[in-house]
Structures are given as C-alpha cells and as structure tokens.
Amino acid sequence: MASLAATKRLTKEYATISKSPPPYIVAHPSECNILEWHYIITGPPDTPYEGGQYWGTLLFPHDYPFAPPAIRMHTPSGRFQPSTRLCLSISDFHPKSFNPAWEVSTILTGLLSFMTSEEMTTGSVRASEHERKLLAQRTRWWNSTGAGSKALAAPQNSNTRGIGAIKSGDGGAKFRLEWPEVDEENIKWMKEKKINLTTGFPTATASQSPCSPEVAGLRRRPNGSATGVGAVVQGGQVARDASQSWLGRNKWKIMLATLFAYIIVARMVGDGTATTSA
C-alpha cells in the first residue's frame, strides 16, 4: 500500500505529465494501484525504433520518492528483454543513487535515452538494426493481440520475472485494460494494413504472387500459354511421350530390321573371307 507521501507525490506527477508529457512518452497510473504506472514510448525518428509502440511499467515502492521504481518494457524491442527488470541508475537496482527530486517524467526520459544508446546492462540485449526495425513494425500487433494469442483470459504474471511481469499469450487483455483508446487505434490500423492477427505480418492478397515478379514471369503468359522454364519442361515431356509412343508401336519392326541387317553384314563378311582364302 502506498504511503500518504507517495500517493500525494504520484498524484501531483500524474497531473504534470498529463498536461506536459515528455517527447515521445505518455504515462498514467493504474486505476487500481497508484504505485503501478504504465507508459508508452513511441520510437523516435532516425532510430531503429522509429514509429514503434513500446509499452512498459514502472512499479513504485510504497516509500517513493525516497526509493526508485522497478522498470520493465514488455513490448519486444531488440534492446531489452521483454518484461524483465532493468538495471539502471534510475531503477530499483540502485536505490542509493536515486535522487528524490527525480520525477516520473525524469525516469522515463532517462529510459528513452538509454534505449537509444548501445550501453549494456542487466536486462538489455544485443540485436542488429534490421532486427530492431522489424520488431518496431510489429509492436502495435504485439501489444493489442498478446503476440497473436486469441485468448482473452486475464493476464498472467511470470514467476521467474517477478511481480509486474507480462507474458505474451494473454490476448492483449492487460494492454487493452490500461490503454483502451490506443488498443482501438491499433486494431483499426491492423485492419487497414491487412495485418494477419496470428503472425503480425501483412496478409498476402489473391492478386499478390508469393514469389518475385521475375520468377512469376517464368510461369505463364497472360493468355495462358506456357513460357520460360515451364515451356521447356512441358516441351521435354511431350518429346519424351512421343518418343516412347513411337518405340512402343514399332519395337518388333525395329528388332526384325536389326536382325536382317546383321545377317546381310555377316554374309558379306563371310563371302569376303572365302574369296581371300581361294
């Protein structure tokens, strides 16, 4: 349970951050627990996270602001292990270094700054820029579907990651509870982009070929005639069929002709040998 000082301080900070949010950051406390805050960081331009929607939590101690919160980012980013406590100077890993003058906006601005750096710590991971960009494209899907899960059960905590951890597979229930308006926007966005709710990737339409245009062009012409590789294969098959059919019909004639030719040659050779001996 939050102390009176913590409740008063966090209530004031919520009013401040709602009125003047830091760049690329929005945050609010849970309706059920003022010590549990939810934030969304929008990936800044000119970073691998550009346009990504990164959801996480701050779990404040009852004696805040005299002790720092536990910081987690639930959305896979390629920068942090999802739903894992992060070891930062502004987190509960370093309570002695925390400054009571720091506010929620200060903490989240520091988290964003660390996210866009390459410094390593407990809870961070290494990934290529390409991998992080791919993850950024799927963040809305991950948040609103629970990584493709269709279950709408209550979110489950991970025993291995502590209180406040979010597991994929809750059908996006926890995110939907805390961010209903954002979730609605995400669902609309996924419909417009034709995102497959199971995979998070765009759904191929009937008019789209699963292979490249260059390969598709080798298959058939618009009028349906065979061309390219298909024509070669088809032509070869026709030739083989024709050859096998002709041989099947004339195999006895061929055998007799071969035998007759052999007899003629044998006689000629025999006559030549007899003349030479005489």
Rank of each mutant, 00 (worst) to 15 (best):
T106G: 05
I71W: 04
G110Q: 11
A67F: 01
P65Q: 06
E119Q: 14
G51P: 01
W102G: 03
G110D: 02
L58D: 12
G78A: 08
A101T: 14
E118S: 14
S117G: 13
I90V: 13
E129S: 11
D92F: 09
P95N: 00
H62C: 09
R79Q: 06
K96R: 13
R126I: 12
T122P: 00
S89P: 07
R79A: 10
G56R: 05
E103Y: 05
S113K: 01
P95V: 06
Y54S: 00
F80L: 09
L108R: 00
L86C: 06
S117N: 08
A127N: 00
S77V: 12
G123V: 02
F60M: 01
T122K: 05
S117M: 14
S128E: 04
A67G: 12
E131V: 11
E103C: 11
T57P: 08
G56I: 05
F80R: 06
D92G: 02
Q53W: 07
G52L: 03
L112N: 10
H74V: 09
R132H: 03
S128V: 09
P68N: 00
P68F: 03
F114Q: 04
P61R: 03
E103K: 12
D92N: 15
V125W: 02
P69Y: 08
R79H: 05
T57Y: 01
S105H: 12
S83R: 07
T122I: 14
A127F: 03
N99R: 07
S91A: 01
Y54F: 14
P65F: 10
Y64E: 08
P100I: 03
F93P: 06
E129W: 14
H130P: 00
W102S: 08
C87E: 07
W55N: 03
I107F: 08
R72F: 06
F66V: 09
Y54W: 12
N99P: 00
P76E: 14
A127T: 03
F93K: 02
L58H: 05
W55Y: 09
Q81S: 13
S89A: 15
R132Q: 13
S113V: 02
G52M: 03
G52N: 07
S124Q: 03
D92K: 07
W102C: 01
S83F: 06
T106K: 10
G78S: 04
T121R: 13
P95I: 11
T116V: 15
F114G: 02
G51L: 10
S77P: 10
T106H: 15
E103F: 03
G51T: 10
A101I: 09
